[in-house]
Design a protein around this nucleic acid. Structure first.
Lengths: 149, 149
DNA sequence: TTTGAAAGAACGTTCGT
DNA sequence: ACGAACGTTCTTTCAAA
């Protein structure tokens, strides 16, 4: 997939604000709305644009504690089964099958430390095959962005 | 901030597709467009809705290697200065100030392992005050979602 | 609070060029 | 890539339930 300068400009606009009107972008870039429309269709067809999302600020709902948890699995425990169990826990936002010490690295979002403790003791550790965990609390997320175009 | 059932339904629609027309959501939920309009304004004013983003699939652009890197900083190196340096590296998508072994945990996205190696050796390790790093390659990201409403 | 309606502006989309 | 045209959606407003 190759992007020219105009494609990149369009993407940079929409990645910041998915609701930005096409015509407004057209005016900013200096080409017609129809042209942008065509390009967006191409980008969509290529699979590069996989959708749009409203971004929510979890702090407003009281979710202030983010953490990464490295999980060690027993030999017998298959990764897919563990993932299936983790999917059912809504606090788990990401789950990665990683190289290195752990079998799995997950990112969780909790209301506070107590919530996190409960999540660890009553949810994560209770999953069959989970032998040990290592938790890293994010005291402050200082960068959060998508790939730069 | 308290959400009632209708708020939650609206959010669930928009979190999946930010471009979904309000009137269509209204029809699905069974209330008027004007009501949704009012609620969205409230949600925006509360700060819960912090914007919308087009989601890009980096694989289409050839970015297939995601990794987490734990960074050890020298005592002398202040966290803000390190973050400033990391901000300049576009491959760095997230940066967390964490408890535990490392000073900083970052998430990076690279085209391939070679790209990652270059990033580590020529960019990250070159930052003044970075003493050591530990890298965890994500072989497969199996969950990726926002907070559940 | 929500509704239904109504107005005008702005938008997405599709053409022929 | 353009510009015009059409149908839809958005925003805003208002009186009424």
């Amino acid at each position: 997939m190759k992007l020219d300068g105009i494609d990149k400009k369009i993407l940079r606009f929409l990645m910041k604000d998915a609701r930005r009107p096409i015509l407004e972008i057209a005016r900013n870039i200096g080409i017609s709305g129809a042209a942008i429309h065509q390009r967006l269709k191409k980008l969509e067809a290529s699979g590069l644009l996989s959708g749009s999302k409203f971004v929510i600020n979890p702090k407003v709902l009281g979710y202030t504690t983010m953490a990464y948890i490295g999980i060690f699995l027993d030999k017998a425990m298959s990764n897919p089964r563990a993932v299936k169990a983790l999917e059912k826990i809504p606090e788990v936002l990401e789950c990665h099958y990683t190289t290195g010490n752990w079998s799995i690295l997950i990112k969780v979002l909790c209301k506070d430390n107590e919530h996190l403790m409960h999540l660890l003791n009553k949810e994560i550790q209770q999953i069959e095959g989970v032998s040990r965990t290592e938790t890293f609390i994010s005291l402050n997320q200082q960068i959060n962005r998508q790939i730069s175009i």
